[in-house]
Each structure stands twice: as C-alpha cells, then as structure tokens.
C-alpha cells in the first residue's frame, strides 16, 4: 500500500516536472491587428506611459541599453538591452516574439521571463499598442551592450518553475478594448501596483493590499500608499494628484525624491494633461486601504 502511494506520488511529481519543462510555451497570432495605428510617435508616448526607460537604462549608460540592477528577495535582476541591436538587443525579434513577451512573459527562445519584467501588468496592453512600442524601440539607435546575467538564489534559477507562478498570478490579456483610460494607464502601462503594493513570499502581489504601499519595495525602500485612505492620498484632490504627476509637488509644497522623482520626470510628467487627470480619477476611485 505504502509502495503504491509512493509510486503514485513519484508519477505525479514526474508529470508536473514534465509539464513545467516540456509543455510548449503559449504563442500568439497577430492576423487581425489594425496596422494603421502603429506609429513611432504613438509608441514613443506609450513607452513614456509604460516607464520602460526607468529599468532599461543604467544611470551612466545609454538609454534603453539595459543594465539597471533590481535587488529582490530572489536575488539581483539586471534589466536587458532593448535597443534594436541584433546581437545584444531585440533587433531580430518578430512582431509575434514581441507581443508574446508581453502577453505571456515568454522570450523568443521560449524561456519564461521573471516577473521583475512586469509582464503580468503589460499583458493587458493591446496588440496595436504593443506593436507601436516595438516600432518606437526599433527606431532607436542600436547599442551593442551584452546583457548581464541575473544573480539569483538557487531555487529561483529554475525558469520552468515560472509556469507555476504564471498559473497563480498571470491573468493573460489583452484588457477589453473599452477599458477605462485611467485603469489602462495605472493597471497596465504604468504598472503602479508593482512598486506600490506588498508582495508575498512568491513575489506575487497581496491583492487585498494592492496600492496600499509597502515598507519593503524595490531595493528594500519604503513605497507609499496611493489609495484614498488617510494613510495614503485621502486628503488629495484630483488636481493635487495630477499636479504631483506633472512635477512631483505634494499638496504641502514638497517635491518628491527617490525613484518617484525619476518616474515623474521621465514618465508621468511627459503625459498629456488628460491622461494625468484620468490617472488621478482612477486612483481616487480605488478602495481606501490602510497601510503600509
């Protein structure tokens, strides 16, 4: 009897391992995408809304050539080169490769990405917008800069295990076409919750504390609550939020520092006034949550 149970467990373990390692990664088809809206200008704007430059550019390095170190409980991730260099960047990527990376967190070679690349947010971006982002990145000067391998704790090194993470936390998109603009900017492109929420031991966002801030954000830094609670932005008006997103000034006349200063300068400060107002409205409509 014991022997039968052990054999059963062994077979199950092998089956799970087989699924993790050998099951084909998801693919995408792009036959029905409207190509007329795919422009470099649109992509430029979306890249600003998406905050790509923040992680994909090292402080003293070329924009988008990668290199930023992201310290996490799973080790240090190094953001890759996303300039169109064919050898070290994304120069050789097909449209399907690019969309699949965002939609499913899978590389052109079929490897799973770590969610340090926030594909679990970007999955909601529409095909048209993703291809506009690709058009913009393809328009950049190719920079030859080899990617630095991640330095991870031993158990995080097994990439097929990310299939389990995706089963738990990835709600593959795209978002419905009629998604509210503020929701699209905050939840998908801007991926605000990636830093403004606590994460559990598996690196998944703690959903009932989403946007409520964390004392242990990227690099171990505290990240504030951005829900309309007294612990967060409960006493901010929509105008206060929009103004903050434009130039980083809080209602008290203080100017934000840290990572958010760069986000304001490179990302939210570059958006249209309408988009900043849409973000403000969306944040004020979030459930008020205490914390961190």
């Amino acid at each position: 009897m014991l022997r039968a149970v052990l054999i059963g467990l062994g077979v199950t373990a092998l089956a799970v391992l087989g699924w993790l390692v050998f099951w084909p990664a998801p693919t995408v088809t792009l036959d029905t995408v409207a190509r007329g809206d795919i422009t470099v200008e649109r992509g430029d704007y979306l890249v600003k809304a998406g905050g790509c430059i923040s992680c994909h550019s090292a402080e003293e390095g070329e924009p988008f050539a990668g290199g930023v170190a992201l310290a996490s409980p799973f080790g240090t991730f190094y953001a890759p080169n996303i300039t169109p260099d064919p050898a070290t960047g994304i120069g050789g990527w097909r449209d399907e490769d690019f969309v699949r990376a965002f939609r499913h967190g899978v590389s052109p070679d079929g490897d799973f990405y770590y969610p340090a690349f926030p594909y679990d947010f970007y999955t909601g971006i529409s095909d048209t917008d993703l291809l506009a982002i690709k058009a913009y990145l393809d328009s950049l000067d190719p920079i030859e800069q080899q990617n630095r391998p991640h330095e991870l704790v031993w158990y995080a090194g097994f990439r097929p295990g990310l299939r389990l993470w995706n089963a738990l936390y990835l709600d593959a998109g795209p978002a419905p076409g009629d998604r509210d603009r503020g929701a699209y900017l905050v939840e998908n492109l801007g991926h605000c919750a990636a830093c403004h929420s606590p994460r559990n031991r598996l690196g998944g966002i703690v959903e009932d504390r989403r946007f409520a801030g964390t004392s242990n954000g990227p690099g171990g830094e505290a990240v504030p609550n951005i829900t309309p609670h007294d612990d967060g932005i409960g006493d901010w008006s929509a105008g206060d939020i929009a103004f903050f997103l434009e130039l980083g000034m809080t209602p008290a006349g203080d100017f934000v520092g840290g990572e958010m200063a760069a986000v304001v300068e490179d990302n939210t400060g570059q958006l249209s006034a309408e988009d900043r107002a849409a973000i403000a409205d969306y944040l004020l409509g979030l459930p008020a949550r205490p914390g961190p």
């Binding site: 980083g248 934000v256 520092g257 200063a261 304001v264 300068e265």
Partner: peptide, 10 residues
C-alpha cells in the same frame, strides 16, 4: 520644481 525633485531623488 524638477530641480527640487532632481536633488531629492538622490
């Protein structure tokens, strides 16, 4: 304002 934030950032 950007100069204020630029300094606070670092």
């Amino acid at each position: 304002g950007r100069t204020c934030g630029g300094c606070h950032e670092v």
